[in-house]
């Protein structure tokens, strides 16, 4: 082989870069991510439900919140009719956070894991949580 030193050095760099995710996760266990719905408000519900079914909320909540914001701020519409026919007041702090008062154990759980930083709390006031 020609220029052996340079080629081997380049290949070592390539190998490290290409397998970096494997090297960084060597011997690390997968974290278990369960957003907690253990709040007094939710526990007091006879039948636990959100404004939409769980699977929909899980993947579409960001879009729903975005639409809610536009509905309120641009159209002044403060009532949301869920797919179950119930009416809900459109409000992050008074509807969402009323039940999900545990932002740190609910919202932040997945958001931190996925390194997502929603800018909800740039305008809204995050709930005060008393960490026991």
């Amino acid at each position: 082989m020609y220029n052996t030193g340079k080629i081997i050095a380049g290949l070592v760099v390539f190998f490290i870069l290409a397998t970096l995710p494997f090297l960084l996760n060597l011997g690390k266990a997968n974290a278990k991510i369960e957003p907690s719905i253990d709040t007094p408000e939710i526990n007091a519900m006879p039948k636990k439900h959100c404004v939409e079914p769980k699977a929909f909320m899980r993947s579409e909540h960001m879009q729903l919140l975005n639409n809610w914001r536009d509905q309120v701020v641009r159209n002044g519409n403060r009532i949301y009719v869920g797919s179950d026919g119930n009416e809900y007041p459109i409000s992050l702090q008074n509807t969402c956070m009323k039940c999900h008062a545990n932002k740190k154990k609910f919202c932040d759980k997945c958001h931190n894991y996925m390194a997502v930083k929603p800018y909800c709390w740039g305008c809204h006031i995050a709930p005060k949580e008393n960490e026991a």
Binding site: F22, G27, S59
Partner: peptide, 25 residues
């Protein structure tokens, strides 16, 4: 067509930590 993104990361981390899992959803 959104997917269950947390489960996707579980799968990805499972793969790279040589402990593959297939999460639901």
């Amino acid at each position: 067509f959104k997917t269950h993104i947390v489960a996707v990361k579980q799968l990805a981390i499972g793969l790279v930590s040589l402990n593959p899992t297939i999460p639901e959803g």
